[in-house]
């Protein structure tokens, strides 16, 4: 049992677990800093997936697992990652690590997890196993709970080996050596540039970044014609879920990125980045207002048409494009001077 593990609740599972593990080794990096370094901000309008009930067609983040891998690779921390075919072997290896006093991060399925508030078949939730007492494990789940929890051996094994899309196969990760982190200012600039590049999109492809938001607005205009009145509302509800509930909630990671820019301004000594941080929260508020309007539309409390909602989405896309173009130039000005 590891005694001095500090459980800090966070907004998002993956970044929360990463910052908690780093904090255990004495590296004080906040959750939002890891989100920024891992280039987590993105927008994807997922193509080719048919819309059936609560299937989600949009993602406000990159692929699960990439934030952890990118952030720690940049920081130069040595990590171990392992997947298994044998279930008992997977549990035994984890016990060995726990006996040495190493906290182990796990990728688990959400459906069979006993304390999970959502019963969805989503196999990329992250939590951290902290200790073992007899047949029970102590876990820290920073995105849902404020305290440490207990889970039985059989439950944890079942959760680590779910079936369906994106099988984790008992994927676990840990830090091999005690990390030493020096100056991170150049890493911050590098990751800001890459995020700008990602959000401004690939040319001629209309599913990623700002172009993806525009594509979403085009589909929203045709919603009623395509799905009928009832199903169009379900589609809007799933959009609200993506903005408000999944991951961080609260306008899909925009506020978290704003906090990252605010912290970056202090580390880099660039007060101009603070203005960008405030602008980012304004964009986050626009997303939240959109969710509010959609909620009213679902409950029949306002006479907003789907075209009006789509116009708002176009407004957000324009604001984001302007923001990231300006943020990209920020670096260039510094290089010239």
């Amino acid at each position: 049992m590891i005694t001095n593990f500090e459980h800090r609740p966070s907004a998002h599972c993956e970044t929360g677990v990463t910052s908690n593990i780093l904090n255990f080794y004495g590296c004080k990096l906040s959750e939002s800093m890891i989100f920024g370094l891992g280039e987590g901000l993105s927008f994807i309008y997922i193509p080719f997936i048919p819309f059936k009930g609560n299937a989600l067609k949009f993602s406000f983040r990159t692929v699960p697992g990439s934030v952890f891998a990118r952030a720690l690779k940049k920081l130069g921390v040595k990590i171990g990652v392992k997947r298994f075919t044998n279930k008992e072997e997977a549990m035994k290896e984890m016990d060995n690590l726990l006996a040495q006093g190493i906290p182990v991060g796990n990728v688990v399925g959400m459906y069979h997890l006993p304390h999970s508030p959502y019963r969805t078949h989503f196999n990329a939730h992250t939590l951290c196993v902290v200790g073992k007492e007899g047949d029970e494990y102590t876990i820290s789940d920073p995105s849902w709970h404020t305290t440490l929890l207990k889970i039985s051996y059989s439950d944890l094994m079942r959760v680590r080996f779910p079936a369906g899309a994106f099988k984790p196969n008992g994927k676990m990760f840990w830090i091999k050596e005690k990390p030493v982190i020096g100056d991170i200012s150049h890493l911050i600039e590098q990751s800001i540039q890459k995020t700008c590049k990602k959000m401004l999109g690939i040319p001629f492809v209309s599913y990623f970044g700002v172009a993806g938001i525009v594509t979403m607005s085009k589909r929203m205009r045709k919603l009623e014609k395509r799905y009928g009145e009832k199903d169009a509302r379900v589609y809007l509800a799933s959009l609200i879920q993506a903005i408000e509930e999944i991951g961080t909630g609260g306008a899909g990671y925009r506020f978290m990125y704003g906090l990252f820019l605010h912290e970056a301004a202090e580390i880099l000594n660039k007060p101009k980045l603070k203005d960008f941080s405030i602008e980012m929260t304004r964009i986050g508020d626009l997303w939240r207002l959109l969710a509010l309007e959609c909620g009213r539309k679902i409950k029949n409390r306002s006479e907003v048409s789907y075209n009006d909602l789509a116009d708002k989405v176009v407004e957000i896309a324009a604001a984001e494009k302007k923001f990231f173009l300006a943020l990209k130039k920020e670096k260039l000005e510094k290089n010239n001077s």
Binding site: P9, S10, A11, S32, G53, N54, Y118, S143, K230, D231, R233, V234, A237, S238, I240, Q241, E244, E245, T248, G249, G250, F255, M256, G258, L259, H262, S277, I278, T281, A291, L292, G295, I298
Partner: peptide, 29 residues
């Protein structure tokens, strides 16, 4: 859930309640 917000001077972290969109999605189900 945890939420980050900015009050003009400083960043804060708070717990906030959500609009229940999940129930609407589940009605079809």
């Amino acid at each position: 859930m945890v939420q980050y917000y900015f009050d003009g001077k400083e960043w804060h972290k708070k717990w906030e309640k959500k609009f229940d969109a999940c129930a609407v999605v589940m009605t079809k189900h």
